[in-house]
Write a protein that binds this DNA or RNA. Structure first.
Length: 504
RNA sequence: GCUCCGAUGGUGUAGUCCGGCCAAGCAUACCGGCCUUUCAAGCCGGCGACCCGGGUCCAAAUCCCGGUCGGAGCACCA
């Protein structure tokens, strides 16, 4: 047997294939396998899977959040588990009260099913009691060093003077922090890890600090707040999380949170950290978006220029698109670049089947078709869906129609073009003359048009520009994603005479 | 600087754990053709990749070592 392998390895591929063809033709038949991309199975027990989405309420969700939302939702659906939306509002200085409402809305519009909502600021007593228990075990101490001093100690791998304070005193100090007797910046509660950890971010990290800001929900009652690493660890345990799927930027946080699990002898969930996605040239920082809105640069969170979930949905991106894109991307831990090309192509696939075709004439130019008889245009609403019917217009003798300025600019003396589904016209001496022919013209010479009684319409585009023009009369009855012929897909709100540009 | 992670076509990915079915699959983009009274969609065909250098092995995208490049973190943000 071995010698056969050696023999084959040493021989030429071509030669082997030639021999195989003659001797065993059937084995060369290679089936083309269909590849539907699916997420890998998660390890561990698949009964009672509990996962969570843990955004901070600093604003609505944006494109960057959609991956964690979709991925967690996908797995919970697969295992019939429970998905918890945990709003991480333990930093009072960074809360937009509107976000408590907007985040669930955004998730719903993405088709993410949340089974339970947990708000961390309503669980502060739980965090306090876990803190007391860790103080008692000597894993948490109260530090009154100045911020810079504490940083220096850590950088030098040295213990600060408070690291060995006794349990009693720590407990006493902690209660003073809870009660508000100690002011912001004067003390913090620190988790004792190891000072010589080679990873500097894991050395004695802060678990609680007193906030100088008033918390919008519980501001009258609480001033002491846990940092995310503490509240996350406590909640992941108390909410019985089985699997945690999040970005690689959280990796060091996971290491920090593990100390809490270890000190309490809690069973850890399985952790997954997918790679970072870079979104070239786009603004995905909630704080910057908020600033822009405050300054009047953007109209609101759903401004077409912003990549918030609400804006993308309003532009006509379908929830299935987000889902397919992120499932296709998988759980890889490699960093990648977001591809609008692929994202748009996926969306086009979903939207095209149902998008009614309409004429939108940008920068309209009024023309008359010299010598034209009374005409009737019957234009399919969808070229491959006859069941959707036709739009019909009657163009009387001497009535005007509108064509696009850019098409007008392209006309040269003697050119014949076709007004789509209406008639051929020849450009002569600056006028358009009716032309008998109905024959199909060469590609590129069919232009769209609008009848006289069209309505004015504008399309807002994500680059901040606006195209103004006319939409054909029947367009005012069609809401939702439509395809403006020779223009692109638009989510149309005809009652307002406006559409939001989806993509080409 | 320190810690941790990663590297497959222009882009997004499959395969890597457990080496042989990988002569590397799929999608997107691009090119050509078909269809079409939209520059859309659809159909057919084509182009195009295992970061570099060593090693182990009959056999390496896959395992080991070194290098290079890229990313995340090193906040009393999440």
């Amino acid at each position: 047997m071995h010698s056969v392998v050696e023999d084959l390895n040493s021989r030429d591929r071509e030669e082997i294939i030639r021999e195989a063809e003659t001797r065993f033709p059937e084995i060369l038949h290679k089936m083309k396998k269909e590849q539907e991309h699916t997420l890998p199975d998660l390890p561990g027990d698949h009964r009672d899977v509990v996962m969570r989405l843990a955004p901070s309420p600093s604003g609505p969700l944006h494109l960057g959040h959609t991956r964690m939302a979709i991925l967690n939702d996908e797995y919970v659906r697969r295992y019939s588990g429970t998905l918890i939306l945990r709003i991480e509002d333990t930093n009072p200085g960074n809360i937009d009260p509107e976000a408590y409402r907007m985040i669930p809305e955004d998730l719903e519009s993405l088709g993410v099913k949340v089974h339970k909502i947990v708000i961390q600021s309503s669980r502060l007593d739980l965090y306090y009691s876990e803190a007391r228990s860790l103080i008692e075990k000597g894993f948490v101490y109260i530090c009154t060093c100045e911020r810079e001093t504490a940083k220096r100690y850590k950088a030098e791998m040295k213990a600060c003077p408070h690291r060995n304070t006794g349990v009693e005193e720590n407990m006493e100090m902690f209660e003073k922090m809870v009660s508000g007797e100690i002011k912001a910046g004067e003390a913090s509660a620190v988790v004792k890890t190891s000072l010589d950890d080679p990873n500097p971010s894991l050395r004695d990290w802060i678990a609680f600090r007193i906030s100088p800001h008033r918390h919008p929900l519980v501001g009258d009652r609480y001033v002491l707040f846990p940092t995310m690493n503490f509240s996350v660890a406590v909640d992941d345990h108390h909410l019985k999380l089985t699997h945690v799927v999040r970005g690689r930027d959280q990796l060091n946080n996971t290491y920090r949170q593990r100390f809490i699990f270890r000190y309490n002898n809690w069973k850890e969930p399985y952790y997954f950290h997918y790679g970072m996605i870079s979104y070239p040239g786009t603004l995905l920082k909630t704080s910057l978006m908020k600033k822009g809105i405050r300054e009047g640069k953007y109209k609101g969170w759903d401004d077409v220029r912003l990549l918030t979930v609400r804006s993308l949905i309003r532009r006509g991106y379908r929830p299935e698109t987000f889902r397919k894109y992120w499932v296709d991307s998988g759980l890889r831990d490699v960093d990648a670049t977001f591809s609008w090309e692929i994202f748009d192509s996926i969306n086009r696939g979903f939207v095209d089947q149902t998008a009614m075709r309409l004429f939108f004439v940008r920068d309209p130019v009024k023309i008359r078709i010299e010598g034209a008889p009374e005409m009737e245009a019957k234009i399919p609403f969808h070229p491959s869906r006859p069941d959707l019917g036709k739009r019909e217009y009657r163009i009387g003798v001497n009535q005007h129609v509108y064509i696009q300025q850019s098409d007008m600019n392209g006309m040269s003396e003697g050119d014949t073009v076709r007004l789509k589904d209406l008639c051929n016209v020849t450009f002569h001496n600056g006028l358009f003359h009716y032309s008998e022919g109905q024959e199909l013209l060469r590609r590129g010479s069919i232009i769209h048009w609008c009848p006289e009684n069209s309505s004015s319409y504008r399309v807002e585009k994500p680059d901040g520009t606006v195209d103004s023009g006319l939409i054909e009369p029947l367009g005012k009855d069609i809401t939702g994603v439509v395809q403006m012929e020779r223009y692109g897909y638009v989510n149309s709100f005809p009652e307002k005479g406006i559409g939001y540009y989806t993509h080409r």
